[in-house]
């Protein structure tokens, strides 16, 4: 996984509550053999009409938000099925941070596994960030995971909470595999010893 670095990016406002995983990635996209390439299909049924043309009103289709890397969302983002295709699709679109008052549990966990940071904020803060996001492409938010702050385009700074271990994993770009890879010396040593004791394996 890539290391999660401090960045400033465009935030897309999605005030709808209960955005579920079926909306994030509809089921017809689950037959893929890939986890990359799902970005174009993220929010497909909200984003395209039946002929596959873009629906101009949908926020991510508006010129200001096509490069968004943050989503400021309504309550209970990511509810529904456990499909890991949902975070795969958002990450592939380029989303790094999602802010909401609450997230569905499995989705929340899946975000970290895929290098994304979900941030839980109280309603008043989400309201401020939503207003800021609505200003469009010039209003870039800054996310600093190290300092645990998110700043609006006009310089208001809000601290956020994150689990220390998960923070460490994101900052270092570690997933389960990355963590195990930190133990590479132990694996090397095991292999060297096994080559002696069970050379036929």
């Amino acid at each position: 996984m890539e290391k999660f670095e401090k960045f400033s990016g465009i935030a897309a406002p999605m005030p709808l509550v209960n955005i579920d995983t079926d909306m994030i990635i509809p089921k017809q996209y689950l037959k893929t053999i890939k986890r990359s390439g799902l970005g174009v299909s993220a929010f497909a049924e909200m984003r395209y009409d039946e002929q596959g043309n873009e629906i101009p009103d949908f926020v991510l289709n508006k010129p200001a938000y096509r490069e968004a890397s943050v989503i400021v969302a309504g309550d209970n983002f990511g509810c529904g099925s456990s499909r890991e295709h949902a975070p795969w699709a958002l990450a592939d679109f380029g989303i790094k941070v999602i802010v909401s008052t609450s997230f569905a549990d499995i989705f929340f966990n899946n975000c970290f596994k895929n290098g994304m940071l979900p941030i839980v904020m109280p309603q008043e803060v989400v309201d401020v960030l939503m207003k800021d996001a609505e200003k469009g492409a010039n209003a870039r938010m800054e996310v600093d995971l190290e300092a645990q702050t998110i700043s609006t385009s006009d310089g208001q700074v809000f601290p956020f909470e994150v689990d220390a271990f998960r923070k460490h994993c994101l900052l270092e770009g570690l997933d389960d595999i990355g963590l195990t890879m930190e133990k590479a010396p132990a694996i090397d040593a095991f292999e060297a010893q096994a080559a002696q004791s069970r050379p036929w394996v």
Binding site: M1, I33, K34, R35, S36, I177, T180, K183, A186, I187, F190, E191, A194, V201
Partner: peptide, 25 residues
């Protein structure tokens, strides 16, 4: 425990996303 695996068998249905994951990272 972290357990060492001597043999890993792979078939076409459950492996594509795993290989894809390797490629992506």
């Amino acid at each position: 425990c972290l357990l060492y695996i001597d043999r890993h068998l792979v078939h076409e249905v459950t492996s594509p996303q795993a290989f894809e994951g390797l490629r992506m990272s």
